[in-house]
Nucleic acid binder design. Structure first.
Lengths: 341, 341
DNA sequence: CTGTTAGCGCATTCAT
DNA sequence: ATGAATGCGCTAACAG
């Protein structure tokens, strides 16, 4: 392995001089700079990032953590897109990404803590938040630099989120405008902040349109087609009337479609359905599904940008910035009763 | 930050002793071991992985690289699943994963090389291979430990692959069995080894069933619905007759479905369609799409296992092991002319 | 502008 | 079984 010493020798300077040209110090004569650079090239020298990290006590690598529980998620392209976004700016700003996929929130918490304490990462991007999020609480109390993709329900933190409330509200109103009377909210895990926010938006729309809201209108399900199906079946059995469904995820929405088929109920004529995430194949299901498109790539991008800014200028970190990324309702047949738009 | 010295002091031993109990050395009296362990806990000590890496000259982190070009790919859950698989064994064996997403093969090559030379990673998992793959060639000549997910067209390397040839063969035969006469191969980038292997399987089936094969039967497209659509339209315009399509990807297959719809051609009656990857929503498109299910999770898992084994026992690395993961044809309506199975 | 010195936190000889 | 000494490769005062 070729080290800084080898370069120094070849350029007939001291190691510190080499270190300086690597760091791009200005107080170096053009002469020696050139000589050193040449030596580096001739020797094919690449600085050892580990040694560097040890000396400077930071690593230029960012952790990205996913609690695999919250992931229908990891099965849909959402995370891939987030990663692409993060990667783009990481690349541009010369950072690396360390991936941490964990089966449970507990393991996630321990793993992240360890990564930090081991000094493997300088900061963290967290991808899902629950109501009393252990990870976030720990991160705060340990003063670990991080940004959340999503929203923190408890303490304000640096975060970039999509406008779930607004999006759910628009989607619901869209259904009302299409003439649906009783919209059900078909949500995922109640403890996820996303679910809560979407529910809030839904309620808000109900309120604005002066539609009755009842606890029974919120039905909870896992993020799966089967679960969505089952939830609606259960709702019907309990005698809850409805002619539309706002699903907090496309899989759930698909479950609603399945349900409709099973009870010979026409979509969109007798049942309107809207999903979340705008999964790629959605235009090809039958009927094509209306869905809220979320800009996952942008979420990842902004999150990384925010974190790196914070890391590089700790002073600015005082204000707990919260970035909001707008989403878009992609209207397709499954919610178009009036054939309009 | 609490270091090994702090622990040493508190346990009234030397730093090297602490280092030994961390490493699990046997030549340590139970007494002192206990004392040290207690001190570590009391101080909440976690070894600095960077310092450790520098001293031992390896990092216990593995790079995972994706050339974003080959990725329809990154848009479908394939990569997510691969990562989950990798992550599972990494976690179990106490390794970390460094993510590298690159826009082009060239940048990918440079980035990976750099990660290695910077000593950030001990080894690499590569996710797509092309015909004269620059990355792989470089990796070999630089003697960098890596395993390929896929197959190397040029030199034998450590790899874990799914049985593309066999899978394509079975899928094609399935179409023949269903009574289709002229099946077209709708492939992605010709330079991808996957494409080639699937084409080989397709040809093999043609040969076995004594069907004519012509270069014109292989049509190339990007990994997108539109491109698949366009490719079939072009084929028809060129007067190539066909009544079935084996698509090397689900998106392409969907393009075929679109095409069929546009020319009022019934699927599966007048056109049989089979895809690859078994994307989650496929059962819900119309008609439900037959597709080859690939065990991406297993691919990632085996790849990581293989790489770590190699890293930890360099001796075994001599034989260029190639693991094959079987896939499964999931038959749905889009290819079921005879209503059988 | 450049060289010298002293760590960064840990692992690993070599003694004892 | 344990301690002292040295080095991993680089950065960062401190001199000059």
């Amino acid at each position: 392995m070729v080290t800084i010493k080898d370069v120094a020798k070849r350029a007939s300077v001291s190691p510190s001089t080499v270190s300086r040209v690597i760091a791009g110090s200005t107080r170096i004569s053009l002469q020696t700079r050139l000589r050193v650079q040449q030596a580096m090239e001739e020797l094919n020298y690449v600085p050892n990032a580990i040694a560097r990290s040890l000396a400077r006590s930071h690593t230029r690598t960012i952790g990205f953590t996913v609690a695999r529980q919250a992931d229908d998620a990891f099965a849909n392209p959402f995370f891939s897109e987030v990663m692409r976004g993060m990667s783009t700016v990481a690349q541009a700003r010369d950072y690396n990404i360390l991936l941490s996929i964990n089966p449970t929130p507990e393991e996630e918490r321990d793993k992240c803590l360890r990564l930090i304490k081991e000094r493997r990462i300088d900061g963290l991007i967290v991808s899902t938040s629950r109501v009393k999020d252990q990870l976030i609480a720990t991160l705060i109390s340990e003063q670990i630099p991080f940004v959340l993709i999503g929203r923190s329900a408890d303490t304000p933190v640096l975060s970039v989120n999509n406008d779930n409330v607004q999006a759910a509200r628009s989607a619901t109103i869209h259904l009302f405008e299409q003439g649906y009377e009783r919209v059900l909210f078909l949500g995922g895990d109640r403890n996820l902040v996303v679910t809560q926010d979407r529910l809030t938006g839904y309620k808000q729309a109900c309120f604005e349109w002066q539609r009755a809201y009842d606890e029974a209108f919120m039905i909870e399900a896992d993020f799966s087609i089967e679960s969505g199906f089952a939830a609606l079946e259960a709702a019907r059995e309990r005698g809850i009337p409805f002619d539309a469904v706002l699903a907090a995820d496309d899989l759930l929405a698909l479950g609603a479609l399945q349900y409709a088929k099973s009870v010979h109920c026409q979509v969109p004529e007798q049942l309107g359905v809207v999903g979340f995430n705008d999964s790629p194949l959605l235009s090809y299901v039958n009927p094509p599904l209306t869905s809220v498109k979320i800009l996952a790539y942008e979420l990842g991008l902004e999150a990384m940008e925010l974190l790196l800014d914070t890391l590089e200028q700790p002073a600015k970190a005082r204000t707990k910035k919260e970035i909001l990324i707008p989403s878009e309702l992609v209207v397709r047949a499954s919610s178009l009763r009036k054939g309009m738009k």
